[in-house]
Design a protein around this nucleic acid. Sequence first.
DNA 1: CATGAATGAGCCTTCATTCAT
DNA 2: AATGAATGAAGGCTCATTCAT
Lengths: 214, 214, 214, 214
Amino acid sequence: MSEHQDEKVIGEYPYVPKQQRAQAKRQALLESGRLLFIEQGYEQTNAKEIAAHAGVATGTFYRYFVDKRQLMMSLMNEQLDRLLPPIHDWTTNNPESYLAIRLEEHYKQLDQLNLNLLLPELLVKDSQLAELFEEIRSKMLRRIISNLRSAKKQGLVWDDLNVETVAWSILLLSEQIPEAMIQGRKKEDFQHLAKVICRLVFPPEKLEQLKTNK
Amino acid sequence: MSEHQDEKVIGEYPYVPKQQRAQAKRQALLESGRLLFIEQGYEQTNAKEIAAHAGVATGTFYRYFVDKRQLMMSLMNEQLDRLLPPIHDWTTNNPESYLAIRLEEHYKQLDQLNLNLLLPELLVKDSQLAELFEEIRSKMLRRIISNLRSAKKQGLVWDDLNVETVAWSILLLSEQIPEAMIQGRKKEDFQHLAKVICRLVFPPEKLEQLKTNK
Amino acid sequence: MSEHQDEKVIGEYPYVPKQQRAQAKRQALLESGRLLFIEQGYEQTNAKEIAAHAGVATGTFYRYFVDKRQLMMSLMNEQLDRLLPPIHDWTTNNPESYLAIRLEEHYKQLDQLNLNLLLPELLVKDSQLAELFEEIRSKMLRRIISNLRSAKKQGLVWDDLNVETVAWSILLLSEQIPEAMIQGRKKEDFQHLAKVICRLVFPPEKLEQLKTNK
Amino acid sequence: MSEHQDEKVIGEYPYVPKQQRAQAKRQALLESGRLLFIEQGYEQTNAKEIAAHAGVATGTFYRYFVDKRQLMMSLMNEQLDRLLPPIHDWTTNNPESYLAIRLEEHYKQLDQLNLNLLLPELLVKDSQLAELFEEIRSKMLRRIISNLRSAKKQGLVWDDLNVETVAWSILLLSEQIPEAMIQGRKKEDFQHLAKVICRLVFPPEKLEQLKTNK
DNA sequence: CATGAATGAGCCTTCATTCAT
DNA sequence: AATGAATGAAGGCTCATTCAT
């Protein structure tokens, strides 16, 4: 996500460095911020610490970021839409394996940055972030809903499927990669989860049909 | 939950008042704390504010609570196990209606106190609370798992049911009463959710069987 | 020392009880104050503690004393002149044994109340007390000086005796009963000290003469 | 006395500045602390006041000192052994003039810093400081005692000299430079005091002998 | 009179941010 | 640009004193 996005959320940077050195410094600050936020929590981390961890002076922090919040926002902006599962157009072909792959990818992204651990704290604190996140979530939900609706029209799903509830369930199950998995991290786990989600949507025979079509 | 529970988490109160007047004051502080924590977040609320909101002086706060954290812990202690859904012994009789009723009850409890909104922030900050919560959650999960296992032995569930994954899904779906419902609050919503959970577990014909048995 | 004295230093009491019960309560507060002041220091002791130690409520403290300071002053007033050694008219008869007896008496008084341990802290804090104490000390010093002068006239003392310096030394040595003694508390210690003081004043032959006169 | 000494008493400094500017600031804080402690007493002085007096912000105080106590300890550490009189090896040569010189020096040191005025209050409050001070005092006393003993062996002192009592008296007389002198400050005063101390130890003829030997 | 809960001023301390070098 | 010392507002907490019961 570009600087343009940043501006949408957080306004102008005090200084967006062009030179390689400075860019590296900015990145170091972002990374230090991410690590310390995750380790200690957002509120428990202060600018001085972040600067020290990044190997720069306190003042330098403020050359690159307006304040701690902006650094956090920059982190989030880059990743906010990655925090939600990338589920769309999955009701065709082999939904189970498709989902399993997407969920695993998603998990790997989460695992890389771990920003999802920060989100709960931040959403309470920062209504702007909360709104933005909610917006993205809504979009995602609407996408799942429209997906389910078209599958319903095609008669692929359970007769009595309540689209909204199931869509919600899917979003929930897939965005919070069950912590159980965080320990195991086995491929099968994602397949199990994919199967669970598919069961919510497709009767066994329809699912079988979709699988063999492929 | 009794004072005894409190001790488990936070040790002795500086003063647990015996007189009615004082008890009322303590309750007012708890309630003010709850409201402000939910409204502004835990970290954004300070003892002075809570005291002012409860209509007492700052020093009075410290007569009843060691600090902000203890007030929060007192709130949580009373409610911690209510934050999790009360799901057990539901695989007999009519699971759908049973679940729907339990979920609605659970939702009403959550809605009353809204402490669940605080939990994410606090779990990051307070490892003691996090442990306690995780313990309760584990117990709940194990209960769901054993429930599923016995249903499986009786041949009531899907043949290919992965107990752990489904148990996790059930816990997740029922503990986070979908925010969507928080707006609507219709009875049907809980029935829809109950149906979704039942679908994860029972094949249609078995479910029908369980319903008519009753 | 009477209440009249108290007024000189600290003004009216909020309430001087006539009844026996109340008098006992006042005494209990004084005694608790004394004990706690000595044990923890004046500044480290608060009114609530004193009241609790005396077995009365916090508010009751303020019925009998304007504040902590007044309680302390009452203690001191009763004892201030006892904190200084009672040395006068000792240059006749057998000065050594006379002094030894007086010093021992003085030590016993100090040991009873131990208010002397408080004095250093209080003299820094309370200029009124400091003045009062200094006044008493001056009086005592002048008494010793005049005593020495008359002894000098009678040719009893060292030829080159500097009255002021010796008077000061005597006051110092006798008011601060050497801490060494506080441990041992032997009778001889006081005799040793008496001998030391006498040596400052009398040449051996004159001292011998005074002794045998008796 | 070095930083090493400080550590003995109070552990590491939060920050011992290297730059000259910062060192000057630290000195200003120490000096302000000293002045205000002496003027108002230790307990009556707070960090904000010290900072304001030194012309810095409150927060700056905490950059250089952990708290008020540490500042005080730094002051004391530098001076603790100067608070006691430097009396040793004085029983040879001309004890009177030697002592007079040493006492005058000692007085000048005391007068410069006036930390001795703080000591009584602090010894009550700070048991660590009290121990340290007592240790130094013991050492001093033992030194005086051994000095007296060797003089006794040489037959220089009064026949009936009680070493302990006299040593105590000497320490007392010399550490508390009589306040009387604080007013006058005449050279003779120190000579008078020296004479008094010598009289405690030496018979006139032996003293004369020691004087003429030189 | 006694009680002890309540008060709130004031101290200690932290830390986000500024700014002189 | 970078530095890191300095700032001072703000929160945490205590305790001398008051006052309703």
